[in-house]
Design a binder for these strands. Structure first.
Length: 579
RNA sequence: GCGGCUGUAGCUCAGCGGAUUAGAGCAUCGGUCUACGGAACCGAGGGUCGGGGGUUCGAAUCCCUCCAGCCGCACCA
């Protein structure tokens, strides 16, 4: 069956559709609660809840549902236990679904018929400051989400909300002037941002005259002094160029065009204040202009303000966030806003969203979510830091992973050498770091353990790459001497059938990521698929099989390899041909 | 004090729109195989799902409460 876009609709969706129709006949809107099963292929658990609401015996209701259920050509159904519906796909349908996947480069993932404009705010490093572990999760998770939504056909607008404004820039610009522009540019372009920033900071703390100059410089910056603005732009451009190098190293899709920093909204801040005032939402409190959305209190139980304009007439970051939100809704036409920002900002963002709703800047129709994530912990289960207590530079972290991957390759006979090994080591390192970050439930903290991450065994990125490389190896040997058309998909061996059922679930896994904004749903799926494949691989010789059975097994290899490669690519992970 | 997140096998983690015996990886122990890349596969041991209540025919999953850890709670972003 095809849907409107001409793409295959997932097997799960097709079954769910038919089940919903049967449930609707008894009670409109009742949820069949369909899921994968170890008993049949799928099981529907919704009968018991339905029976309760109807006040009838579950098995009786189950029989009623079955009577209304039309699974003709799709599956066999049986009632089990207290009222479970166990579904088993018919062999013909399973074969048909596999054939369709075989001819579909998207492996069953439909192009959304109604593309949405999805704005994803992620990464957000600070100008003239080093990128460190604190930026890892936002960058990796945000990029994975961007890839998944893009692939689904939505228009993704990445927004890298870099910190490029505020009082520190007086100090940074003065330091730039002191060391000389050429010197500063050389230092920054080498990625030596920590040294630059710390030197500025040190002088600022020690030298009152420097402090005074810095203060004056902030005023000049804010009032638009051309020379000051030029110097500021030098800092900004150098930093963005550096960030871009880091993104390239990580294979992250962010570009300089995605950088729309805090400074971009300066001109809109007055309007934010004026409009909030006009809406009667703005109150003066302690000399500052604030909005008090309901439901937020401080430690004394008093109303908690969102400070829009500070006592000193400066704007807080809340004003910037509100201006950015309005821009995304009004000018970019966002249907969805995702903020991939750490958990500590949860309350701040909640308040920003609440105020935006109050001001009618954020329509109900816009999906607006804070994509929270936990901390990266060290082996001591505390925030990951260097031995000297500083935050770990992102590039240092990748370099370390590359080193481990290089060692692992070197230890293995027959692995590629020279430049090829270097490329491979980088691909493995990215897979290790990204997969470890993406494969746990986002909101949890996780322990950063390079040894485990880079391992080729277990639930790791490199393991998935390896599984893919083995599949490709088989396919290379087979050459062009097989075809999907010749594969009957009889699936006589249970391992073949188990793998086939896994392959049908790819579209559902990507859909789950879009619904939950949890990339780990895709990770879990891919790891499960890789395990199904190895079980198949063990039980079913491929190249030595004969006739149609060989075509069938090669087709399963091909689908497995394509699914792993595509799935990994949606996570921002490459799938090399050989390892 | 208020709010949020987290607490599942020795370790690292899934599962948490309730449902048929709580899963996986690593580690440990025991097996298998001339192996299409053995960086493999099969099996075993190991869990009062933080504690205690409650709802339910049924709770790791929903509600209440307590404990522990992390984070946030007005002018830094």
């Amino acid at each position: 069956m095809k849907c409107e876009t001409g793409r295959v609709s997932s097997t799960y969706e097709q079954l769910a559709l038919r089940l919903r129709q049967a449930f609707d006949a008894l009670s409109p809107g009742a949820d069949p609660v369909l899921r994968l099963s170890e008993r049949g292929d799928y099981q529907a658990n919704g009968v018991m809840a339905l029976a309760k609401s109807l006040g009838r015996a579950p098995r009786e209701v189950a029989a009623d549902v079955v009577a209304h259920l039309d699974l003709e050509g799709w599956a066999e159904v049986e009632v089990a236990g207290p009222g479970f519906l166990n579904l088993t796909l018919t062999p013909a349908r399973l074969a048909q679904q596999l054939r369709e996947l075989g001819g579909d480069p998207r492996l069953g993932v439909e192009v959304t018929p109604a593309p949405a404009t999805v704005v994803i705010d992620y990464s957000a490093p600070n100008v003239a400051k080093e990128m460190h572990v604190g930026h890892l999760r936002s960058t990796v998770i945000g990029d994975a989400l961007a890839r998944v939504f893009r692939f689904a056909g939505d228009e993704v607008i990445a927004r890298n909300h870099v910190g490029d404004w505020g009082t520190p820039f007086g100090m940074l610009i003065e330091h730039l002037v002191d060391v000389g522009e050429d010197e500063a540019v050389a230092s920054l372009s080498m990625g030596d941002l920590n040294t630059f920033y710390q030197a500025a900071r040190t002088t600022f703390d020690a030298d009152p005259a420097f402090r005074e100059r810095s203060r004056e410089r902030v005023v000049a910056l804010q009032s638009g002094d051309p020379e000051t603005r030029r110097l500021w732009r030098v800092l900004r451009d150098q930093s963005v160029a550096y960030f871009t190098e880091v993104y390239r190293k990580l294979d992250v899709t962010l570009t300089p065009e995605d950088v729309v920093g805090e400074s971009s909204y300066n001109d809109a801040l007055d309007t934010v204040v004026a409009d909030l005032a006009a809406a009667g939402l703005l109150e003066e409190s302690g000399g500052a202009w604030c909005v008090f959305p309901e439901g937020f209190t401080n430690r004394d139980g008093e109303r908690l303000p969102l400070i829009i304009k500070k006592r000193d007439d400066g704007y807080g970051y809340a004003a910037t966030d509100l201006a950015a939100l309005r821009d995304r809704v009004d000018h970019l036409g966002a249907d969805a806003l995702f903020y991939v920002v750490g958990a500590p900002q949860a309350q701040h963002l909640e308040m920003v969203f609440a105020v935006a709703r109050l001001a009618h800047w954020l329509p109900e129709s816009v999906r607006c979510e804070h994509v929270v994530f936990g901390n990266v912990l060290g082996p001591d289960h505390k925030m990951l830091r260097t031995r000297s207590g500083e935050s770990v530079r992102l590039v240092a972290l990748i370099d370390e992973a590359v080193q481990r991957a290089t060692d692992a390759l070197a230890a293995r006979a027959g692995s590629p050498e020279g430049p090829e090994r270097a490329t491979l080591a980088l691909q493995i390192a990215r897979a290790a770091v990204k997969y470890a970050d993406l494969s746990t439930e986002r909101s949890r903290d996780y322990v950063f353990d390079l040894d485990r991450m880079v391992s080729f065994e277990g639930d790791t990125g490199p393991y998935l790459q390896y599984a893919h490389a083995r599949q490709r190896s088989i396919l290379r040997r087979a050459g062009a001497q097989w075809s999907y058309d010749a594969a009957p998909f009889a699936l006589e061996d249970p391992a073949e059938r188990h793998l086939a059922l896994g392959l049908l679930g790819f579209a559902d896994a990507t859909a789950a990521v879009r619904d939950s904004l949890q990339p780990h749903r895709l990770c879990t799926y891919l790891f499960d698929l890789a395990q199904r494949f190895t079980a198949f691989y063990e039980a079913c010789p491929v190249l030595s099989a004969e006739g149609a059975r060989r075509d069938e097994r090669l087709a399963l290899c091909d689908l497995s390899a394509r699914t792993l490669a595509l799935g990994l690519s949606l996570l921002g992970i490459e799938a090399p041909e050989r390892m």
